[in-house]
Amino acid sequence: MSAGSKNESPLIASGLSVKFGGLLALNELSIEVRRGEVLGLIGPNGSGKTTFFNVISGIYAASAGQVLLDGRDITTLRPHQIAAHGLARTFQRSRLCLSLSVFDNLMLGAVRRLNSGLWYNLVRRDRLAADVRSAAKEARDLLAIFNPDLAGKLWQPAISLGMIDRRRLEICRALIGRPKIVLLDEPSAGMTHDETNQLMNEILEVRRNLGNLTVVMVEHEMGLIERATDRCVVLNYGKKICEGKYADVAADPLVREAYLGKS
């Protein structure tokens, strides 16, 4: 299999299972993500959506199955190795380093392309300073797409930001490393309806600017899913119960049952 050929699916999970104690959080789950699409991942609470993200990004170990990222087997790799293959994500509950500046938080997303060498960091301070300047410019440009105000807060601690700006910052942190695929875990969590809509427009705009980046999104807000996704996968009890366009999925009796319970 040649790595990264154009038509191939960038992310393929096959037969993925995860066990917590006796509980099967994922049960032989197979999901294929197509290049350039926005895939919605939906399902009731505890259906395994976030667990799926955690396995893909290497935080949990799969007990069975395989994950291919651009044709490479990443099933047993550690998180930092998976990141090196072009995967980035956000977290459901904010995982910013709140006491660090907006800039510092953003740079964590770019860790792979910044120079971590001792000689460079301790001795070549002139080169470091020049790189900091260009990184700051890049950071401002990216933040400005979301919110011009945010670009002006580059040196403020992340804790000083409001909820929606924090979420923006997390998304920017995932984007600044120029990943091939991004996992967004409930971008709307903790925000009002209007804020959510606004944020989603911004995300879609940035995605277009980045040449139709592949996105997998966990979301509870069904309006968002309808508007933003090309395709949906519905999970229940760690299993895929349905897959397809939102309109088709929403009409599926199995999906209705999963959400509303048996009537």
């Binding site: 917590f20 104690g21 976030t50 935080i59 949990y60 977290f91």
Partner: peptide, 8 residues
């Protein structure tokens, strides 16, 4: 103990 996992 059985293998635990970190809270995320």
């Amino acid at each position: 103990a059985e293998r635990g996992s970190e809270r995320v």
